[in-house]
Design a protein around this nucleic acid. Structure first.
Length: 409
RNA sequence: GGCGCCAUCGUCUAGUGGCCUAGGACACUUGGUUUUCAUCCAAGUAAUCGAGGGUUCGAAUCCCUCUGGCGUCACCA
């Protein structure tokens, strides 16, 4: 049975690239009726950052790629690592020095494995792998030991991790061999690069999943974009749901080149999802849960009309607030004020109390033609904005009063 | 620098020896729909497939060399 694990270290907030590893683990597990486990690699006491475990769990929960079973904390398994360290010392594979325990890798050995990404053989000579620490002087294991011991004990079948681990895989292979254990299948995922082609980091403005969520990105967008960055389900599709990913996910379709994160396409994709999800109103309510001003609008009797008028104009949920803002974006010039007054006069004269869409549109068109005033200007005079929700839509939502107020101000 | 991985439009990618005078998407440009903006629709610009050698009747696809990019060389993961 397939059993995989996502094994982050709680040393701060992970940026969006980190979560891709979790996604691929999840996809592979689900696609193969397997199990997906979360293991916290908290073996570096100095670098622990409070709250990062909670943040990881919250991210996975929000994205709906949740692990099953108990969460394993390596810091609670110290006895285990000590026991296996002793075993290696007894076998003369490990030795103590300066209070730490090292493993010596024989020069004559060769380590090779078939990596699932690219289905290629990777091999390293033993002489290129230095002696390495497995147990630190503070009694905590290093990644190398803890990782191998836990993966074996937890019966992990496939290890999905970042490509930066390739060069330490020989160490892990040697550990498996020394213990007499069968190594799992390795799948080293290409690292995501920033626009300057170096490993994506905060320096590039790469944010955490939670940051993107707070900026109005949908979980569908994040999952969709991260999955397609380096994986291709076949065909020309750009939009794919988590369920479909699970159905189509195949190891051999993962690319081995390093992709660059393109925030412009990412934003486009978010707009695409916003336009197509069924429960946009619900998403907005959740997103603006603490913003009573926006919430009032969303609970109002015109909510449906507003949301549907705003949908095609949003790239992020944050844009919604701007779209429904009634305040003019700038002052009118004196000339504009004159035209506004005239327009209001004409509207009152022609429409009276009947501001139906048809009559309003017809009158605006006539006014535009007769006075050589562009619709762009008319839109500004009537709404106070240079762009935004259409006049006829606003007529349905706010009605006459809104326009009159703008024309008079 | 040693070791390893990678290499198709600016970016994400399709492509596994002939269907490729290289397809799709984002971005960009132009036109259409339209009450502004956006959406939507149509068209266009953009890769001599990193370079050079092979193999083959035929190569983006296979092999070699080079170049470039990235990763890694911690009592961090």
């Amino acid at each position: 049975m397939v059993k995989v694990r996502f094994a982050p270290s709680p040393t701060g907030i992970q940026h969006i690239g980190g979560i891709r590893t979790a996604l691929f683990n999840f996809l592979y597990a689900k696609a193969n009726n397997g199990v997906f486990i979360l293991r916290i690699e908290d073996t570096d006491q100095k670098r622990l950052v409070e709250g990062s475990v909670e943040a990881i769990i919250e991210m996975l929960k929000w994205l709906e790629i949740e692990p099953t079973g108990e969460i394993v904390h390596q810091s609670e398994r110290l006895d285990l690592y000590k026991k296996y360290t002793k075993e290696l010392i007894d076998k003369n594979i490990a030795y103590e020095k300066d209070g730490a325990v090292y493993v010596n890798v024989p020069d004559e050995k060769t380590f090779e494995w078939i990596d699932a990404v690219g289905n290629k053989k990777i091999s390293f000579a033993g002489k290129d792998t230095e002696d390495f620490v497995i147990l630190k002087s503070d009694g905590f294991p290093t990644y190398h030991l803890a990782n191998v011991v836990d993966d074996h004990l937890m019966e992990i079948t496939h290890v999905f991790r970042g490509e930066e681990w390739i060069s330490s895989t020989p160490k892990h292979l040697y550990l498996y061999e020394s213990f007499g254990w069968e190594p799992p299948m390795f799948a080293h995922l290409p690292v995501i690069l920033g626009t300057d082609k170096t490993k994506l980091s905060k320096r590039h403005g790469a944010k955490s999943v939670l940051d993107y969520r707070d900026e109005g990105y949908l979980k569908e967008t994040i999952l969709n974009y991260m999955a397609l960055l380096g994986w291709n389900p076949g065909g020309d599709r750009e939009k794919i749901s988590l369920d479909e990913m699970v159905k189509l996910f195949k190891l051999e379709d993962i690319n081995s080149a390093n992709p660059i994160f393109d925030s412009v396409k990412f934003e486009w994709l978010n707009g695409l999802w916003i336009r197509s999800i069924e429960d946009l109103d619900k998403r907005l309510e959740d997103f603006y849960a603490k913003d009573s001003e926006v919430l009032d609008v969303l609970k109002g009797d015109k909510a449906r009309e507003i949301v549907s008028a705003a949908a095609s104009r949003m790239k992020t949920l944050l844009d919604f607030k701007k779209l429904i803002d009634k305040k003019p974006s700038r002052e009118k010039t004196e000339d504009e004020k004159k035209i506004a007054a005239k327009l209001l006069e004409v509207l009152n004269e022609k429409l009276g109390s009947d501001w139906s869409d048809e009559k309003l549109l017809l009158t605006m068109k006539e006014f535009s033609k007769e006075n050589e005033v562009s619709f762009k200007l008319i839109f500004f005079l009537m709404t106070g904005k240079d762009s935004g929700i259409g006049i006829l839509e606003l007529n349905q939502i706010y009605g006459k009063e809104f326009f009159v107020k703008n024309l008079q101000s």
